[in-house]
Design a protein around this nucleic acid. Structure first.
Lengths: 145, 145
DNA sequence: TGGTAATAGTTGTTTTTGTAACTAACAAGG
DNA sequence: CCTTGTTAGTTACAAAAACAACTATTACCA
């Protein structure tokens, strides 16, 4: 302890957020890794396409704040796994439209159900009102700026 | 959108936690990186030693849930930077006692103050009661198991 | 004791990530 | 049109992380 040190690392919000994020990701991470050999970014891309439908890589970049090189590599892997197809856009031939294949949809549905169940086990630690407030606060903290 | 898909990725707690954790770490990360050339794990080790005093590597592993190889390499870097010294324990010669040097203490104090200020800017987004609840919830979510 | 298991910490190798530089396509002003 | 700038996405190389195997020391217990 460095003299009268009233700083508590366990109260520092970025630290608490990181610990909570890592711990809460752990169980789910094992599942998509073992079952589908996916990394975190691949899972995120899959879920964006599942939840929002056809998207371009850059719209995922914007929405999820993931760097475009990570997206690029994740898409490659998902294409190799036959979970995603890409098609060059007619309007703007720089863009590629990404879509889930039937296999991708199946994987998404499977993981989505697991995610929903897992989310419920996390929610069960708190009251409904607390969870609602937590989501509001996390969204605010996650905003750019 | 895949049929009547009521799953909202933006409500999935591990996702929200990750977004908030990454965003909230960003600003502070730049500071310890640019000012002291530290990585995240080095910063964490420094703060553990600053806040809790003399510790062994494995006690940091236990407390922070960081893998021992990451700790090992972070300690090496901190020793190279002359921020930390290590001394083999008399009781158990497998263990090394880690301590901050005066330079390490100075860096810790500097970063601690920046951390405190930064934390206050995050807190300012909410009421005091909300922040208190947030901390309780994050601690609960960050617990092992 | 002595042999097996467990713990503290390190090192080597393979994956992933970060950063920068690149190609290709479009946009917009002169 | 044509030069300059911007956007979409990829690739190459360097940095960091994950994972497994290793040494050294201590603990357990038959």
């Amino acid at each position: 302890m460095i003299e009268n040190d009233d700083f508590d690392l366990q109260n520092f919000l970025p630290y608490l957020l990181n610990q909570a994020a890592e711990e809460s990701s752990l169980a789910f991470q094992q599942i998509y890794k073992n079952k589908y050999g996916m990394l975190r970014t691949e899972w995120r891309v899959l879920f964006h396409l599942g939840a929002f439908g056809e998207m371009t890589a850059s719209s995922i970049v914007t929405r999820a704040h993931i760097h475009k090189t990570k997206i690029s590599r994740a898409v490659q892997k998902l294409v190799e796994k036959r979970f995603v197809t890409r098609e060059r856009s007619e309007d703007d031939r720089r863009q590629e439209l990404l879509r889930l294949t039937p296999a991708g949809i199946a994987a998404y549905r499977d993981l989505r159900e697991i995610a929903e169940n897992y989310d419920r086990t996390l929610e069960a630690k708190f009251t409904q009102g607390e969870v609602a407030l937590l989501r509001v606060m996390l969204r605010r903290l996650g905003e750019r700026g």
